[in-house]
Simulated assay, not measured.
Amino acid sequence: MTRPPSRFRVLWVALGFVLCGLGVLGLILPGFPGTVWFILAAAAFSRGDPRWEAWLLSRPVVGDLIRDYRAGLGMPLRAKWIACACIVLAVAFSLGRIPVLVGQVVWVLIGLAGVLFITLRVPTRRNMP
Rank of each mutant, 00 (worst) to 15 (best):
V13C: 11
F17K: 05
V36R: 03
G63C: 03
S58D: 14
N127K: 11
R51Q: 13
G26N: 09
L22K: 00
W52V: 09
T124G: 09
G34I: 05
V18D: 00
A85P: 03
A71T: 01
V106F: 07
F38I: 04
A85D: 08
V61L: 11
P99R: 04
T124R: 12
F17W: 15
G23D: 08
V88L: 15
A14D: 05
S94K: 08
T119A: 15
L57K: 04
G63T: 00
T119H: 10
R47E: 10
G63D: 02
P50H: 13
R121C: 14
G23L: 06
R121H: 13
F32Q: 09
V36L: 13
W107S: 01
T35Q: 05
V122R: 04
P5I: 04
A14C: 12
V108S: 03
I98N: 01
R59E: 09
V10C: 08
L19T: 04
W12E: 12
T2D: 12
V91S: 06
R67W: 00
R7T: 15
R51W: 13
V18S: 02
S6A: 15
F32E: 09
L77T: 13
L109D: 06
L101H: 01
G31P: 08
K80V: 07
G31E: 09
L25R: 02
A113M: 11
A85N: 06
P50S: 14
G34N: 08
W107R: 01
V105N: 01
A90F: 14
F45I: 06
R3P: 08
I87Q: 02
W81Y: 15
R97W: 11
F38C: 05
L56W: 06
